[in-house]
Simulated scan of single mutants.
Amino acid sequence: MKPKLSAYVSDSVSQRLELAAKRPGTNKSAIVEAALDRFLNPERDTSGDAALIRRLDRMSRQLDRIDGDLSVMAETIALFVRYYLTITPPLPSGDQEAARALGRERFEMFVAQVGKRVASGSRLVADVMERVSTSKPDLFTRHIEEGAPLGGAENAETRSRSQDATGEQPGPSPAGREEVGNV
Rank of each mutant, 00 (worst) to 15 (best):
82 R>T: 11
10 S>G: 08
66 I>A: 14
57 D>F: 04
175 A>C: 11
12 S>A: 09
51 A>T: 01
69 D>F: 08
65 R>Q: 03
68 G>L: 05
35 A>C: 04
21 A>L: 00
132 V>E: 02
126 A>M: 04
62 Q>C: 14
156 A>I: 15
151 G>H: 00
3 P>H: 00
119 A>K: 06
139 L>F: 14
85 L>R: 14
176 G>R: 12
179 E>G: 07
53 I>F: 07
129 M>W: 02
144 I>F: 07
61 R>T: 05
91 L>K: 03
155 N>F: 14
43 E>H: 10
117 R>T: 08
137 P>Y: 00
48 G>N: 01
130 E>Y: 07
173 S>H: 15
51 A>Q: 12
83 Y>D: 13
89 P>S: 13
84 Y>F: 13
55 R>V: 03
70 L>H: 05
138 D>W: 09
47 S>G: 13
129 M>V: 10
50 A>I: 15
39 F>I: 07
32 V>Y: 00
93 S>M: 06
92 P>T: 06
76 T>W: 02
79 L>T: 13
144 I>L: 09
68 G>S: 08
166 T>L: 03
84 Y>C: 11
130 E>H: 10
35 A>I: 01
180 V>D: 11
114 V>W: 08
102 L>T: 13
134 T>A: 05
31 I>A: 01
11 D>P: 06
59 M>Y: 12
33 E>Y: 07
177 R>E: 09
33 E>A: 12
76 T>Y: 06
33 E>I: 08
1 M>N: 04
118 V>Y: 01
127 D>M: 10
167 G>T: 00
48 G>W: 07
50 A>V: 14
22 K>F: 07
143 H>N: 14
26 T>E: 04
52 L>N: 01
174 P>K: 02
166 T>F: 00
103 G>P: 03
19 L>M: 13
146 E>T: 09
137 P>M: 01
42 P>H: 00
123 R>S: 13
100 R>K: 06
133 S>F: 02
121 G>E: 02
116 K>T: 06
107 F>W: 15
71 S>E: 12
148 A>G: 10
66 I>K: 15
121 G>H: 01
126 A>T: 06
122 S>E: 11
38 R>W: 10
22 K>W: 03
15 Q>A: 12
2 K>I: 13
105 E>Q: 13
178 E>Q: 15
114 V>I: 08
41 N>A: 07
91 L>A: 02
23 R>A: 15
156 A>H: 11
154 E>G: 07
163 Q>H: 09
18 E>Y: 14
62 Q>R: 14
66 I>G: 10
54 R>H: 06
